[in-house]
Computed example of a mutant assay.
Amino acid sequence: MLTLTTLAQQIRQIAFAEILPRWRQTPVEIKTDGSFITAADLAVQNRLMAVLRDHDPYIPILSEELPAAEQSSLLAAAINGKRFWCLDPVDGTSNYACGFPYFAVSLALFTAGRAQLAIVFDPVHDECFTAERGQGAWCNGQPITPFAPSPLLTNALAMIDLKRLPAARLAPLLTNNTFRSQRNLGSVALDWCWLAAGRYQLYLHGGQRLWDYAAGRLIATEAGVTSALYARDGTQSFNDLDLMPRIAIAAANTNLFEQWQSFVNLPLETA
């Protein structure tokens, strides 16, 4: 039986076999959208898809590295409530390709349009984050929870993805001392997990897709993080079953989230 624990163990084995031995050893290719892909991405995808199909060949698998037409077809079927796996073989490929030790395997199981199970495995630090809807979130089997040093934004550490934010919004975000300090590490799945584990307090990302946030956001939610996804026009998104990029805003608790959301002041685009 493929339980959350046994699946996490298999992901760990695949990551140690396919990702770490290739780190700083494999050439990089550039996809049509300008992002990186490596042999590790494809090796993890192929091996993990084989594991999932062996368990149940009737559950489709949506992976970041599949052709766009195939991704759209899988999501179209899922709109009717069909279960599917959502996989990012190496979330943070740019980090991986450039030697920065912050990347992970991300996998979520969707049922009736919502993520139900989640696994994010960080092979560099040997940390496996897991969650099951309504049951909580864990790191290496231990429960995790967010942390905030105080109820004030000025004492909070913010993870902000700068690349996808409009240039006109960067100066107001970064120069008025609203929060303690800013980080930007480059793996959406791990960003959510580190927020869940209490390693920072505020999160803002201007363009993540389903495979980026599917597993990590469930882990964060089950840990107790408050979050919301938005379209570029600032309207809140309640639909996970498309591939449109989402703005993500999150915080360690509801009080900080309300302050942070007010400060960010959607929409991000300016006239």
Score class of each variant (00 low, 15 high):
residue 151 P to A: 06
residue 143 P to V: 01
residue 95 N to T: 06
residue 187 S to R: 07
residue 165 L to E: 10
residue 172 P to S: 09
residue 161 D to R: 10
residue 134 G to C: 04
residue 188 V to A: 15
residue 149 P to I: 05
residue 150 S to L: 04
residue 91 D to P: 11
residue 99 G to Q: 12
residue 175 T to C: 05
residue 146 P to K: 02
residue 127 E to Y: 09
residue 159 M to S: 12
residue 137 A to F: 03
residue 173 L to T: 06
residue 165 L to N: 09
residue 141 G to D: 05
residue 180 R to W: 06
residue 98 C to K: 15
residue 187 S to L: 04
residue 91 D to I: 08
residue 145 T to I: 00
residue 158 A to M: 11
residue 151 P to E: 08
residue 91 D to V: 11
residue 184 N to P: 09
residue 115 A to E: 11
residue 176 N to W: 01
residue 157 L to C: 10
residue 158 A to F: 01
residue 92 G to P: 13
residue 165 L to D: 08
residue 94 S to E: 11
residue 116 Q to M: 10
residue 114 R to C: 09
residue 91 D to L: 03
residue 117 L to W: 15
residue 185 L to K: 14
residue 182 Q to K: 09
residue 124 V to G: 04
residue 157 L to T: 15
residue 125 H to Q: 15
residue 150 S to F: 05
residue 136 G to A: 03
residue 151 P to Y: 05
residue 97 A to E: 06
residue 188 V to G: 07
residue 165 L to P: 11
residue 147 F to L: 10
residue 104 A to V: 03
residue 142 Q to G: 00
residue 106 S to P: 07
residue 120 V to R: 08
residue 124 V to N: 01
residue 106 S to L: 02
residue 83 R to A: 11
residue 128 C to P: 01
residue 183 R to C: 07
residue 130 T to Q: 10
residue 107 L to V: 03
residue 145 T to P: 00
residue 167 A to T: 14
residue 188 V to K: 07
residue 133 R to L: 07
residue 176 N to F: 08
